[in-house]
């Protein structure tokens, strides 16, 4: 019982230290810069938010075109001609899944970014910086989705070229 309590205290202590270390992961110089440039930083974030909304609409509509007007249409036609290929079907499924993930990660990122913009960086510069780090991670996930979609579209070209050679 005593041992269990000691282990619990150690874990609690570690969690506390880790939390404190995270909050303190900002230098005084950085803290002052955030407080001094608070409005400027927020304006930049709002501009990024607007530009990102534009990028999502642009990319989202083109991803939809690639998926529904090309990849899916080709697979339907292949089935009709009894030439259905499992690798092309897999590619279509992966494209659909990645497109869906792109929308989900974008919404997660925008939620986090909105919370960051709503924070008062003059009052809570440390928490603001912590949130900024988290927003960076979410943005990176969206960027990864963009790369993955491109990769899959290029793969589709390769698969169709192979199909053409074996027709």
């Amino acid at each position: 019982m005593k041992n269990k309590f000691s282990v619990f205290c150690i874990i609690l202590g570690l969690v506390f230290c880790f939390s404190v270390a995270n909050v303190m992961a900002i230098s005084e110089k950085q803290e002052n810069a955030i407080v001094d440039n608070c409005e400027k930083i927020k304006d930049s974030l709002k501009n990024i938010q607007k530009a990102d909304a534009k990028a999502r609409v642009f990319l989202g509509s083109h991803y939809e075109t690639v998926l529904s007007k090309y990849v899916t249409s080709l697979n339907v036609r292949l089935v009709e001609n009894n030439l259905s290929k499992s690798n092309l079907i897999d590619n279509q499924n992966e494209l659909a899944k990645t497109k869906e993930a792109f929308s989900t990660t974008f919404v997660d990122y925008q939620k986090e970014l909105e919370e960051l913009v709503a924070m008062d960086c003059r009052v809570e510069p440390e928490k603001f910086y912590e949130k900024l780090i988290s927003v960076r991670v979410k943005r990176k996930n969206v960027a990864l989705g963009v790369s993955k979609m491109r990769e899959l579209a290029i793969k589709n070209i390769k698969l169709v070229k192979d199909l053409k050679e074996n027709l």
């Binding site: 930049s44 990028a55 990319l59 991803y63 960027a143």
Partner: peptide, 21 residues
Amino acid sequence: IDSYEEPFNTGLLSDESLGIP
């Protein structure tokens, strides 16, 4: 799609871009 310049460029949120040392 590629013509859209650097969508979700991670550098835009860097300390440097936001004026944080």
